[in-house]
């Protein structure tokens, strides 16, 4: 998403900076963009998630498995997990970068944040797939 077209307005940026297309952070706006993209995908997927949970709540085990194993339930649920775990990792990274300034603590916090998001995603995805593939 880098705009490298020559800027006709007066600019403080050097030609090299313009060629690289990078901001003061030293890297591109990729994370910012994915954060927005997952925000957009979260909206329909959260609505689907709420409906799924409301449909499953209070039902016996066999019914719950039957509902979640259906492709039209399992698929939005899988996409929901992928979307929210990515979105929340980037959101909490911003919070860490805002409040944790000591270098070591910051590296540990950023790493723990990624580990947490990946563990949550792996556990949820494995569970949905197991329910989907064993419930016949």
């Amino acid at each position: 998403m880098v705009d490298n077209r020559a800027d006709t307005r007066v600019s403080m940026r050097t030609p090299l900076a313009r060629a690289k297309g990078l901001g003061p952070a030293g890297h591109g706006a990729g994370e910012w963009w994915i954060h927005r993209m997952t925000a957009v995908s979260n909206v329909p997927l959260v609505i689907a998630f709420v409906i799924i949970v409301a449909a499953v709540a209070g039902r016996p085990y066999a019914d719950a498995v039957r509902i979640v194993s259906h492709p039209l339930v399992a698929l939005p649920l899988l996409l929901f997990i992928v979307s929210i775990t990515n979105h929340m990792r980037m959101g909490v990274q911003i919070i860490i970068e805002d409040y944790v300034h000591q270098k070591g603590a910051k590296i540990v916090a950023l790493m723990a944040n990624t580990f947490f998001a990946v563990i949550i995603a792996a556990a949820c995805i494995f569970s949905i797939l197991k329910i989907g593939f064993t419930a016949f």
Binding site: Y61, A64, V65, V68, I84, T85, M88, G91, V92, I95, F116, I120, A123, C124, F126, S127, I128, K130, I131
Partner: peptide, 28 residues
């Protein structure tokens, strides 16, 4: 920001629910 952080922690509840459903009737 606070609700975002709460949802971050809340994914643990979502994970417990899904893992229990995948584990069997007892856990669920």
């Amino acid at each position: 920001r606070i609700t975002g952080s709460a949802l971050y922690g809340g994914t643990v509840l979502l994970t417990i629910w899904l893992v229990a459903l995948a584990s069997g009737p007892g856990a669920y």
